[in-house]
Nucleic acid binder design. Sequence first.
DNA 1: ATGCGTTAGCATCCTTTGGAGGGG
DNA 2: TCCCCTCCTTTGGATGCTAACGCA
Length: 948
Amino acid sequence: MRTRNQAKRQNQSTANEDSLKHYGEMESLSGCKDEASGNETLANISRGAVGKLLKRVNKSRGSRGLKTDDSYLCKQDTMGEPENGSSEAEKQLTGTTVVRTTLDAKCCTTDVLQNVPSELENGSTDVQCQSIEREDELDGIDWEDGPVDTLKSESNVKEDTINGVTVEFDAPPDPSKQKTVRRATAEEKELAELVHKVNLLCLLARGRLVDRACNDPLIQASLLSLLPAHLLKLTDAPKLTANALAPLVNWCHSHFRVRGANDTEKPFHSALASTLESQEGTPEENFGNRFWYPVPDKSVLPNTTVAALSVALFRALNLTTRFVSILDVASLKPEIEKSYPSGKGPSRAGSGIFSSSTLMVAGPKCSPLSPAKSMAYGKHNVSDKTSTSAGQATSDKSRETITDKSNKRMSASTSDAQDDSNDACIIKKERPKRKGDLEFEMQLEMALSTTAVEIARNTMISDVKDVGSTSSNVSPFKKKKIKAEECSTSSHGISTAVGSRKVGAPLYWAEVYCSGENLTGKWVHVDVVNAITDGEQNVEAAAAACKLPLRYVVAFAGNGAKDVTRRYCTKWYKIASERVNSIWWDAVLAPLKKLESVATSDVVHFAQGATRSSLEDMELETRELTEPLPTNQQAYRSHHLYIIERWLNRNQILYPKGPVLGFCSGHPVYPRSCVRTLQRKERWLREGLQVKANEIPAKVLKRSGKQNKGRDVEDDDYGEGDSEGTVALYGQWQTEPLFLPPAVNGIVPKNERGQVDVWSEKCLPPGTVHLRLPRLVPIAKRLQIDFSPAMVGFEFRNGRSLPVYEGIVVCTEFKDAILEAYAEEEVRREAKERRRTEAEALSRWYQLLSSLITRQRLHNRYVDGASSQSAVNIATSNDKSSFLAGGSENTRSAHQEKSEIAKSNSPSFVLAENHEHVFLVEDQTVDEESSTRTKRCLCGFSVQYEEL
DNA sequence: ATGCGTTAGCATCCTTTGGAGGGG
DNA sequence: TCCCCTCCTTTGGATGCTAACGCA
């Protein structure tokens, strides 16, 4: 076995080698492998590759601590291959494969293709390869020293084990630690919310863009020209009904169909026009800035263009129409990956929201469509999802991953092969197996079984243009694939097959206002892509089937937008926590809603001045308030409308306890408006409320053991049992405004501690005022005014809770006097403070200058040899002095008489032969203009300096 | 597939009123 | 001797919320 450094070196060299390798070379390598392993078919290779990847996935969910050792085993596994062949090339291959398995997944294809045969031959399932995702993880690897047979097959490994040669892995995984999950920090939550909001705004803007394109007269005219004459008159009826739209919808559905994805970026408007021309819409036309569109998986989107064309057509026919979209926005909650002990978990670089399945589509360097993925758009949009994964797995340089979001949204992020350093492309793998993962694995297998063949056929060039699900070999997954095809090709088939999102997921549709529906008219859901009319009640189920959360459904018209989620979402409690703060959202939508209202309002106003928009608002509000009772108890935990008693907090109560709206598993359901929060007496005092006399506690809680300890027997006027161990709680309806004894004769009423607890202004005794100013106590004392310290709260210091005082409470009549005295005192204090500061500054200047002089003197004496020079001479004549200095003989006489005083008062250090300058404060002059101050010594020496 | 009960981890709430020692 | 200031040290238990997990 190699040393760790050797491994690293070889790893690096191989990495470079790999990076330089051409696909053709790889192909030749794989070709060698094929020859070596005999009758390996590409399908088998592909299947093996799938197995390999799945094992990696499984492995990554398991012990991270085993990673190193897995790599080692992988080595042996891989090394075992060439026993069938001994060509030079293979020997070389053997030498490098060891490292290749530890490389980043960018060499995935080669790795996979090389590893597969041996695995297939050996039927190995126990020994698994796990590639190390990041090179830096290699740093944590401690290679064991010792000989190793590089050509040892897996069977040899087993033999060795049997013969007593065992490899013991240190730090075996602790299952309990493995299970630990890392909770999102507040910062991460904030970031996720920001991303969510930005994403929402982008999607809103995008919706407006599409909406605007639908108004284009040329497109509308072209659509009309295509429309058969008999359909033109369908909408002429004065009272339009949903049924009348059906032929139009069918025509659209049959004339515009989904075709392969178009990678060329062009404005949505022109995309719309070209779709119109070709009568084929893409699943998602790229337009403008692709960054705007952070869809998790483009391949599964229904046809935006077709939906938009239908809107344009309806508008061309003078129907009031809105373009409706589910805003598939990044999650409001941060994506948390598993935490791994000993820091061996996957790097968090690139993790988080952007690396989740909701992948921000960046520039071409990180196209969301891997080659294989774009292939999958071709004829069979069934396997689009799976091809995505295939693209990852087979692309030479791509990094493979499984996102932890698969449980909810079942989409694997696709990273680009071109740019390994792109954070957005860094993908992670983690999490224990869950239902979503299983589904993903199945899809992965399907995809690989298909695309590996295709890729081989296309000589593994990176820029694969097309692929069909043309796998001719009999795949074990064929049945599933066929089933999926059937589902997706069915016009109404919004299938839950394999649990993935599919084409047909209701992301976009139209809403046409039909005046013939209901009494006042109705917005009718029209999904041309799936040829569904008036199917609003099915949208929620269809979206759920496609794992598409129905968080925001927004209708666009007139360059505005309106949230119509309520129309389509009946289980609001499921999405409420996934929606952004409603205040923010309403504020964002407010201006857009006006625009939308103007655009969709008819000239005809309804009774009592109600407009179409306000009627719709009422309808949506009614839906909100008449949400059906959930059937599961958990839903009542945070339901905005209903509650069952078991989910009440310990300080909550139902008051009044009724009416009972229904039952859930035998539990009566009450309106949430009946839930009241209870408080202790003391807490109500803080809010300026006091419990009424003779009120019986609404609830009595048992106090915890610790709280019991050291707490005196609490007054319990109501005798509700053991007062020591209980806490009496009261509801607000049991309280009244706080009554405090008023201030009398200038005396502030105080509590038992001789203070006033000022939790709020309501807690002040009548006739008193709280002066929140520092240093008031001495003033009040000096003025002999009665006061009380104002306690405003508590803080924890030194391990205990300490009261925080802020200012004092005095009778109102003394307020002015105290404030006046305070102002005077402050002036005095400030002047005193200023003097003190100046004196200190002077002192420091003095020290500085003295030290400079001393330094210079020492310098002259010991460095320049001028030992006899006096300090006075140095100070007065030395040009090297760093500060501006000038002698002034005439000032000397003026200050001579002060010299004696100065000498006696100043900290004189007069040496035998050295005069120590003394700068008296009263001898200073200040030049206001230049801010320069001049200090003078009695000897006549002066110093000028600029004030800072 | 879904719901329920349990468990665990983490975030947040709640608690609540010092005392020794030195210097002026 | 009294008063004032500084320093010491930096809670921790209960509860709520959420997600995972096993089971029905």
